[in-house]
Amino acid sequence: MSTRQLTANSRQSTAHPKTVTMTIDGKAVRVSEGASVLDAARQAGVHIPTLCHHEALEAWGGCRLCVVDVTRQGWDGWCKLVVSCMYAAEDGLIVLTDTDRVKLTRKVVLDLLLARCPETPLIQELASRHGIDRTSYQANPEPTDCILCGLCTRVCDHIGVSAISTVDRGIGKQVAPPFHQAPPDCIGCLACAEICPTSCIPYETSDTRRVIWEKSFEMVRCPQCGRAHITQEQARHYAGRGGVPASYFDTCDACKRRQLASTFTKLQVVQGGAR
């Protein structure tokens, strides 16, 4: 899956992917072409805070926490402030993650998020690590845990369901199912709840029933271990995409793995015996 909007060209697919070399806070790092500055920083062991980034999803650039300054030899000291999660690693790029502009931007972003989410531990900790214990702004009179990172809606789009989206704009923006009603397309996979960095999407799940976004789901029980591991809607959705019968998903992943492992061990035993 192509994860970023970069100029990454098709040469990448050749046997020896091209690499680019750059420096991050003075450390040289070599990454394959198509990587982002954030990828490069992680590889170099330079920490850049992020809130809306996830390896499995296309970069989005909403939280603005991952800003860095970039420059090049020949730019005469001129720097450009960019979000590292979306800026492509380039040969000769000089990345600075600790300039005054970077620090100011991060501070303002965290200060604002702390005002929005004054009671959210993740934000409290992150802000505190950047020296903010109390917001400079008006604390939200109706505290929320949602930082509007968009991970939930994007993961839902990514799995091809798109049951939820953001609605409204500006400060009134929120994540919601269509018409604020139980989303007809939701398959109850919990991907949104699990990816949410602040765990603010409520759900219940039990042996018989699962409820998320105020929609109830019947569970499928694994015929081997009896665990309720998947909703019927999930089984149908995966079957539809994978071209296999829904019953394929009756057995839970753990039991499938166990089965596979035992088949494999038998096989090895047979092969070993033949030698």
């Binding site: 909403g62 926490l65 509007l148 400060i171």
Partner: peptide, 9 residues
């Protein structure tokens, strides 16, 4: 539009 923190908040 509310997509990014500095503008929205």
């Amino acid at each position: 539009c509310g997509k990014c923190v500095p503008c929205r908040e």
